[in-house]
């Protein structure tokens, strides 16, 4: 052993991008499974017009007499004879359009607010925190109900509702992370070197607060899938006939006794996405250790 063979300390909180590149994430089984499920649905959503055997809104009157799975309709049809497989495939489009948009917007707003509050402190922080408290007083569903009562159901209303309800939580997390890192010597060193706040936030702070944020992103994506599914289920989702997994479940509930698959299959689709998000979050958490 020479002086070159060093005693190394574990990289306790190296940036998440570093670890992604090292593909340590894929060594975690839960992350691999979660990622696989998400990629699967993403491919399905993008390729829907080519993959789906039928138009999701086309009605097959012959099949509506017996909606059970058959050679023509692998997963059967719904009560009025629309091909269930095609509807689930197109339903993925709705989910994978609404969810990324709303979660991205929530994280953008939340992360900026959290960074600003944590970094500047003082009044900026107090005002942002109070604003967050006010928003947190509105349960997500209630907020959405108010929005549609006034503005009617639309994609953007869902995005706004999710942003308003999730951004405060993201901001709190981000703020805590910033406060934890802000007093560390390497950030002080950057300040003492006269670096601009923007540089410090982007280059010194962000790479080191990534992991908890990514974990939170995965979890919240899961919640958002639940919320959007619930909206559809309550009939508050996107206006018909856009196929929407939550809406499909509610259409099937009345036929539960005879044809349970009509409700259970789309329910399984929603659940699989939520499970995938949670698995991915677990994977990130493991790799962060």
């Amino acid at each position: 052993m020479t002086a070159g063979a060093d005693r190394t300390t574990t990289p306790a909180r190296a940036g998440f991008l570093v670890r992604l590149r090292g593909s340590r994430l894929l060594r975690s089984r839960s992350a691999t499974v979660g990622l696989a499920i998400l990629v699967f649905w993403l491919v399905v959503a993008i390729g829907a017009p080519w993959i789906a055997p039928y138009d999701p809104t086309a009605i097959d009157f012959a099949a509506s007499a017996d909606p059970s799975p058959s050679a023509a309709h692998w997963l059967g049809t719904d009560a009025i004879g629309r091909d269930l497989l095609s509807r689930i495939i197109f339903g993925a489009r709705t989910t994978f359009l609404v969810i990324p948009l709303s979660v991205f917007s929530a994280f953008l707003v939340g992360a900026i607010a959290g960074l600003a509050g944590g970094w500047y402190g003082g009044w900026t922080d107090t005002i942002l925190a109070r604003a967050g408290d006010v928003m947190l007083a509105f349960p997500a569903l209630v907020l959405y109900i108010i929005l549609i009562t006034t503005f009617g159901p639309s994609l953007w209303n869902i995005v706004i509702a999710v942003t308003l309800t999730y951004a405060p939580g993201v901001a709190r997390l981000m703020r805590g992370q910033v406060l934890a890192v802000k007093g560390l010597e390497y950030v002080l060193a950057a300040r003492a070197a006269g670096e601009s706040p923007i540089y410090i936030m982007a280059a010194e702070i962000l790479p080191n607060v990534g992991t908890p944020l990514i974990v939170d992103l995965c979890l919240r994506t899961g919640y958002a899938v639940i919320l959007v599914g619930t909206l559809g289920f309550l009939g508050l989702g996107l206006p018909p006939p856009t196929p929407d997994w939550g809406g499909m479940v509610v259409e099937g509930v009345n036929l539960m006794t005879i044809y349970p698959h009509i409700a259970l299959l789309p329910a399984a689709a929603v659940t699989s996405v939520v499970v995938a998000c949670n698995l991915l979050a677990d994977g990130f958490r493991e790799t962060a250790r």
Binding site: G229, A267, T271
Partner: peptide, 19 residues
């Protein structure tokens, strides 16, 4: 269980215990 939306839990319970 936390991965299951409540409406899915409800549908499952109805399926098993009611239907």
């Amino acid at each position: 269980l936390t991965s299951l939306p409540e409406f899915v839990v409800a549908v499952l319970l109805i399926f098993v215990f009611a239907a």
